[in-house]
Design a protein around this nucleic acid. Structure first.
Length: 302
DNA sequence: CGTATTTGACCTGCGC
DNA sequence: GCGCAGGTCAAATACG
């Protein structure tokens, strides 16, 4: 039974072992053992490998994914720069109470920016949403929310949606989500209160991701000759290939069918979304970047 | 059929 | 007390 572990990380792993890093390496560099045409470990499915080796040379593929890698790395750098700027700024861009002006919120490339006053139970989160998404008044933050109201407010043409935490009936946390009046692509969410329960298991969150659901649908429909499992921590997604067709090259067939271009895009989008909203990941990321910056400052005395 | 969402009505706080 | 605006409730509706 061949398998490919998509993502694996833990709170204390350095950034280079984080799912996003692994994903980027696997998908873009060709360094990842799953997709590397030469360095692939035996028995591993080339997740992001060519769907038809005859149709496109490995060199072309490698060039293309490397280009994509550069773009994503640039986007990641922008996110990191935003976070560093935010951390260094004496005045938070989004803070408790009140909506943020578009000039104050997260800059290009998207991603949520979260700030909170240390002891406040009210915090505001700004995130970029797709303008085309009609149902974008909903920020994925790992919790389940039940909408209980909507109101058009005086100073904003976009309706404000009211949510309660639906994970635990007794959880007092509420959130309000409203598009920014100045920049409709920005969502401003205000959280009130603190959750009185554990954070929703990441595995639940991951398993709800459209990319994973797409995989599971394909599996159920029989078009996907492999099994999918998400471990309890939600940090490891395993695609297990059961050779259900004796005599056939099931592994190669799966490699060709599973990772369609649209699925790869959805998967990357989902994982980036997921990781952007994963506080542990952002914490690890920040620490790793800080350590890297320190390494690169020669003779710096602190 | 159970659950989630929508939406108009109602409640509450605040300024005048 | 009145009006306004924000917040919440709950019946109706949609959806899987």
């Amino acid at each position: 039974m061949a398998r490919c572990v998509l993502a694996q990380s833990s709170r204390f792993l350095p950034f280079r072992d984080h799912p996003l890093q692994l994903l980027l390496r696997i998908a873009m560099d060709g360094d990842g053992e799953c997709s590397s045409p030469t360095g692939r470990a035996p028995g591993l499915l080339p997740l992001f490998g060519p769907s038809s080796p005859a149709a496109e040379s490995l060199e072309d593929k490698l060039r293309r994914v490397s280009e994509e890698n550069r773009r994503l790395s640039g986007a990641l750098d922008a996110i990191l720069a935003d976070r560093r700027a935010l951390a260094a700024s004496p005045t938070p861009s989004c803070h408790a109470h009140g909506n943020a002006a578009p000039a104050e919120v997260a800059a290009g490339g998207g991603g949520g920016m979260v700030t909170a006053e240390p002891r406040s139970k009210v915090r505001t989160v700004c995130a970029r949403a797709e303008p085309s998404d009609a149902d974008a008044n909903h920020l994925k933050d790992g919790y389940q929310w039940r909408k209980y109201g909507q109101k058009v407010t005086r100073d904003n043409p976009y309706p404000r949606a009211y949510f309660r935490c639906a994970y635990a009936p007794s959880c007092p946390v509420k959130k309000k989500v409203q598009r920014s009046a100045e920049d409709k692509s920005m969502l401003v969410a205000t959280y009130e209160g603190e959750h009185n329960h554990e954070h929703r298991a990441l595995s639940e969150y991951v398993s709800d991701a459209p990319a994973i659901q797409l995989l599971q649908q394909q599996q159920e429909a029989g078009s996907l000759p492999c099994s999918i499992s998400i471990n309890s921590s939600g940090r490891t997604i395993t695609l297990g290939l059961a050779d259900q067709r004796p005599g056939s090259n099931a592994e190669a067939a799966a490699a060709a069918e599973v990772m369609t271009p649209e699925f790869r895009k959805v998967l990357v989008d989902e994982l980036v979304d997921l990781l952007k909203n994963d506080p542990e990941f952002m914490e690890s990321l920040t620490s790793a970047v800080a350590a890297r910056v320190l390494e690169r400052i020669p003779g710096q005395i602190f």
